[in-house]
Design a protein around this nucleic acid. Structure first.
Lengths: 216, 216, 216, 216
DNA sequence: ACATACGGGACGGCCCGTTAGT
DNA sequence: ACTAACGGGCCGTCCCGTATGT
C-alpha cells in the first residue's frame, strides 16, 4: 500500500499504447515536441522505457502517432463535428461553430494554443514526415469546410462566385492565426473578437438577393 | 611571442554584440529557441563563450534581445514601412502591402515561417518575459494598422462602423495564420491565395456609396 | 480465425537452434561478442526472443555454443582437414595447407580475421568459461599439428631434435599473428608473405641429409 | 578531509588531457574499446564529462589519441628501444629483445595481451580511422625491425637473400600471435616457448660461412 | 573584453532479460 | 516450443553555465 508499484496490469497492449499516446500528447502540447522529455512522458503514463520502445521505434514515431491518432481526432471533432450533413445552411453552421469555439475556449487553450499549430510551427521545417502528417490533418479540416461551402452553393445559400477551397483555407488560416495572437497576448478577448470578425466575414458570402427574407 | 594565434578580432564590443544577435537570430529562426544550441550560435558568430556571457547574463536574455533588436525591426519595416503617413487611402495602402508581401515571399520564408510567430508559439507559455516582449511587438504591428484605419475613418475612406483596433487585430491574426498554414503545407500558393482573400476582405470596409460605380 | 499471421514456422526445435547459432556466429564475427546485439541476431535468424531464451539461458551460453558448435568445426576442418592421416610427409602436408590457405583467403577473411582469435582477444580476460572453451579449440588445433610432426619424426621426415608440441604451438601462433596483422593492414599480400615465410621455416625442420641434394 | 572533492587543480589542460588518456588506455586495455565506459574512464581520471568533451569531440577521438599517444609509444619503446643504432649485430639484438620480453612478461600482460593487437582485432573492421592509425603503429614497428635487418645485410651479419620487409613483418606477426595464444591459454610458458622458437628462427638468417667461428 | 578549461546534469537510444500468454 | 509485452538500467552525446586567466 505504501509502495506505489501497482505493476502488472494484466498485459493490455492496446491500453498501454493509448496511455502512452495520451501522456505524450499532453507533454508535447505543454513543452513542444523537441523539449518533451521521454522520461516525463513515461512517468506520466506510468510505463517504462521498454514498453515505449516496444510500441514505437523512436521519439519521432511517437510524435507522428500523436498527430494522427490524438490531435487529428480532437481537431476534426471540434471544428467539423456539428455540421456533418448540414443540408440547410452551411454558412450559419460555420458561424455557429466559430461562436461556439469563441464561447467555450478555456484558459488552458488560450495559454497553450492549438496543439496542431504548435507542432506545425515547430516541426514543419525540421522533419518532412511531421510536415506531411500535419498538413494532411489541416487538409482534412479545410476539406470539411470546403465541402460545406460547396453544399451551400448547390442549394443557393452561398454566393456563386465563392471558391470553396480558397475560402476554406482562409477560414482555417484566420482561425489558427486568431489562436496564435490570443496566445501571445494571453487574452481570450482578442480570440473572441477575431472569431467574431471572421463570422461576420462569412455574412458577405451570402447571395445579395434574399438579404434577410424580403429585400426585392 | 611564441604562440601567434592570428585571431585578434579588433576588440569591438558593439560589433561583437551585433554579431551575436545576428547569429542567434538565424539559429533560433531555424531550430527554435530551446533547440538552438549556444555552441552553434557561437560557432556561427565566430566568438567564444566568454564573449557571449560578457554581453548577456544567460540564454534567455539573448533571446529577449533577439526579439527586441532584430525581429521587431524586421517585422515592422516589412508591414508598416510603406504606409508611414499614407493620408490618402489607408485601405489601398494595406492592400498594396498585403499583395507586395504575397508577391515577394521567398522559399525560405515559406519553409521557416514568421520568426516572431515561431517564437510566440514556442515560448509564450514557457516564459512570461518572452511572452511580454513578443506581445509588445505584435502590439506595435496592430497599432500601426489601427492608426491607419483611424486615419481612414477621419478622411472618409473607411466605413464609420469599423472598429480599428479589432480589425487591425484580425488582419494581423489572419496574416500570421496564412503564413502558418503555408508553412505546414509547404506552399506559397496557399499564402498568396489567403493574403489575396484578406485584401478582398478589406474592400468590404469601404463606405457603401463610392466604388459601387460599376456594379451592374 | 480472425487473425491469420501466415507465420507458423514448422515448429522444429533443432532447426531453430541451428538457425540461431548461425545468425549469432555471423553477428559476433562481425561486431564482436559484447557488441553483438541479441535483437540483431534474432532479426537475422528470423526468430523471437522467447525462442532464444528457450534454447539458451543467456547471451554467454549462446556465445559458448557458437565457439563449440560453429567456430571449432570450421577451424579444424580448414587447418586439419587435408592431412587426416598423411603418413608420408607431414611437413609437406603442412606446407600445402599453409599455401592453400594463403591462396584461398577471401577479402572478407582479411577484413574480419579469424573468428576464434577475435573471440580470444576480446573475451579471454573477461570470462573464464569463454577462455576455457576457446583454449580447448586452439588445443585441438595444436594437437593436430603436433601429431603430424610426431608421425614425421617416427618415419624420419622430421628432424629428431624437433619438439612437436612447441613447434605446433609456434605454427598456430604465427598463423594467427599473420591473420591479425593482415587484418589491421587490410592487405592479403602481407598474409600471403607471412604464411609463405612460415612454410619456408618448416623446411628447416627436415633432416639435414636429404633435400640437400642440390646445394653446391 | 572526508570529502573527496579536491577540486580546482589550478587549471592544467595538458595534465588533464594526459590524465584522461592514461585512464582511457587502462579502461580500453581491460574491457575493449566499445565496452569501455566513458563514465568509468572519467571516474578513474577524476575529471568530469565537460572536461572530456572539451578535449575530445567524441569517444572515437579519445580512442584514436590513445593509439597515437599512449599505445604507440609504449610499444615502440619496448620493441625498438634497445637497438636504436645497433651497428654491430642486429640479429643478436633482435634475439636479445625477444628473450628479454619473454623473461620480463608480467601476469597482467599474459591475461590482457598486447593493447595494440586487442584494438586491432576489435576495431579494424568497424572503423577505418582506427584501422589506419593502428596499421601506422604496426608499420613503425615493422620498419624498425626492417631497418635493423638492412643494416645487418650491409655489414654482413645477415644473409644476402633475406628480404628485410618480409622478415620484419613475419617477426611482428609471430610475436603478436604468440601473445594472442598465450593470452587464450592463460600461460606464460607458451609465450616464452614461442618467442624462443622465434629467436631460434633468426639464427637461420645468418650467413652460412662463419657458422660459429670454424666450420669448414 | 574576451578566451579557455571545466562542472555537472539530462536526454534519447538501446540493450539484456523476464513474464504473461498460447 | 514459441510469441509478444514489458522491466529497468546504462551509455554516449550534448548542453548551459561558471571560473580561471590574460
Amino acid at each position: 500500500m505504501a509502495k506505489r508499484k501497482a505493476k502488472r496490469r494484466t498485459r493490455a497492449p492496446q491500453a498501454t499504447r493509448e496511455c502512452l499516446l495520451t501522456a505524450a500528447f499532453e507533454e508535447i502540447y505543454r513543452r513542444g515536441f523537441q523539449a518533451a522529455s521521454l522520461d516525463a512522458i513515461l512517468a506520466r503514463a506510468g510505463v517504462t522505457k521498454g514498453a515505449l520502445y516496444h510500441h514505437f521505434p523512436d521519439k519521432a514515431a511517437l510524435g507522428y502517432a500523436v498527430v494522427d491518432e490524438v490531435v487529428k481526432g480532437h481537431l476534426l471533432q471540434r471544428w467539423l463535428g456539428v455540421m456533418k450533413d448540414a443540408d440547410t445552411d452551411p454558412l450559419t453552421a460555420l458561424q455557429k461553430t466559430l461562436r461556439f469555439r469563441a464561447a467555450s475556449v478555456t484558459p488552458g487553450e488560450i495559454e497553450l494554443g492549438c496543439p496542431l499549430n504548435n507542432l506545425a510551427q515547430e516541426m514543419s521545417p525540421l522533419d518532412q514526415e511531421f510536415r506531411r502528417r500535419i498538413d494532411a490533418t489541416f487538409d482534412a479540416w479545410r476539406n470539411g469546410f470546403a465541402r460545406a461551402l460547396t453544399r451551400g452553393k448547390a442549394n443557393g445559400t452561398v454566393r456563386r462566385d465563392v471558391n470553396p477551397q480558397k475560402v476554406a483555407a482562409f477560414l482555417v488560416a484566420s482561425a489558427e492565426g486568431s489562436y496564435s495572437l490570443a496566445k501571445s497576448a494571453g487574452s481570450r478577448t482578442i480570440l473572441r473578437s477575431n472569431l467574431e470578425t471572421l463570422a461576420n466575414f462569412l455574412e458577405t458570402l451570402r447571395p445579395p438577393q434574399r438579404a434577410r427574407s424580403a429585400a426585392a
